[in-house]
Computed example of a mutant assay.
Amino acid sequence: MTTELYPRERPGLVRDAAAEAGLGAVLLTPGPDLRYVTGYDAKELERLTCLVVPAEGEAFLVVPRLELPAAQESPAGSLGLELVPWDETDDPYELVARRLPGVRTVGVADRMWAMMALRFRAAMPDAEQVAAGSVLRGLRMRKSAAEVAALREAGAAIDRVHRRVPQIIKPGRTEREVARDIGDAILDEGHARVDFVIVGAGPNGANPHAEPSDRVIRPGEPVVVDIGGTMPSGYCSDSTRNYCVGEPPAEYRAYYAVLEEAQRAASEAVRPGVAPEAVDAAARDVIEAAGYGEHFFHRTGHGIGLETHEEPYIVAGNKEPLEPGMAFSVEPGIYPGPHGARIEDIVVCTEDGHEAVNATERGLVVIE
């Protein structure tokens, strides 16, 4: 699967995109862009690791000599890239500059450390720096079949975690205790890393980004569980489900039914040619019509892939039509204050509609 996820033609596609954008080269340091192009999940160090993709010529990977074995053993080692090691007394920024004579505009990785961008600016004083994300966004937004398969694998893994949650949430336990056990389950179910665990009980469920606290979960309190991690493939999971120990308040059940309808309407709106803002509106219209509009105050979704949050964003104002292969969350929420709820699936735009990679029950899970 590695060669399918990180194919040999990726550096060439970036080169072509850079040329089309009028850039002389693209410089990618450790982070999701570098991993997307090469498969190399390089350590973020003060020593420079940088994929250099000239608009004319072949790409090459500059690495500290002590990191050379890791680069060779990564998928980057099988791409046919030239690996250029540098020693402790070398200046890797000057090394790159010497190999890019006459370049006047360079795209630097969006996540490049400021100190590295400044060192490149000093080494290439005549080259204007722009964000490389504009070059890579079109490639990364449209997932390949292998990437969609990786997202399915991630979705199935986080689904398995949610199926374990009813055995973890108990009255008398704190949010922090529950979050710790859920984090362990995320790793147990195949993730390489836990990215986040949100356990919001009672009023904390009305804070979409609540941090687990020492608050004790009480009987009859709804609990929002929003969890995600990164798989060994590098691709991410993200799913939100809602639980309650015992019978929830009647007003909660009332708006939860509205939320289910809104999440379903937004998912069903996904198809090629539809603007992301229309998907957002599909959820928002249902919630506003039921009188809860003021309690839904975030976008409906975000793209996902090698990052939990990436393009496209499902929000008012985004008119860029959806295309097959675009993957993103559909996660409307209602947060009145005494409690809150959010339902989140990752969906992929297909040739004729959408596919949800999450399959667990979207209804409220009542824990007896």
Rank of each mutant, 00 (worst) to 15 (best):
L100C: 09
L100E: 10
P101K: 13
P101Q: 14
P101L: 10
P101F: 10
G102C: 08
G102D: 09
G102V: 02
G102A: 03
G102K: 11
G102R: 10
G102F: 04
V103R: 03
R104N: 00
T105V: 15
T105F: 04
T105W: 01
V106R: 05
V106L: 08
V106A: 06
G107P: 05
G107E: 09
G107W: 04
V108E: 04
A109M: 01
A109T: 00
D110A: 14
R111G: 10
R111H: 13
R111L: 10
R111Q: 12
M112Q: 05
M112G: 04
M112A: 13
M112Y: 02
W113V: 09
W113F: 14
W113Y: 14
W113T: 08
W113R: 12
W113H: 12
A114S: 13
A114C: 09
A114G: 08
A114E: 14
M115S: 15
M116G: 06
L118P: 12
L118C: 13
L118F: 11
L118I: 12
L118Y: 14
F120G: 03
F120A: 01
F120C: 03
R121D: 11
R121V: 02
R121K: 15
A122C: 07
A122H: 07
A122E: 13
A123F: 01
A123Q: 03
A123V: 05
M124D: 02
M124S: 03
M124K: 01
P125C: 05
D126L: 09
D126C: 08
D126G: 13
D126N: 14
D126M: 09
A127D: 05
A127C: 07
A127I: 03
A127H: 05
E128L: 15
E128F: 11
E128K: 15
E128C: 13
E128H: 12
Q129T: 03
Q129A: 04
V130G: 12
V130T: 13
V130S: 14
A131Q: 13
A132L: 06
A132S: 13
G133F: 09
G133C: 06
G133N: 09
G133E: 07
S134D: 15
S134F: 14
S134A: 15
V135P: 04
V135H: 05
V135S: 03
V135I: 06
V135C: 04
V135R: 05
L136M: 06
L136H: 01
R137C: 02
R137H: 01
G138P: 08
G138R: 08
G138Y: 06
L139M: 04
L139V: 02
L139W: 02
R140V: 01
R140A: 00
M141Y: 00
M141Q: 09
M141V: 02
M141I: 00
R142G: 09
K143G: 01
K143D: 00
K143S: 01
S144L: 03
S144D: 07
A145F: 09
A145V: 11
A145M: 13
A146T: 07
A146Q: 07
A146F: 08
A146C: 11
A146E: 06
A146D: 09
E147F: 00
E147N: 02
E147I: 00
E147H: 03
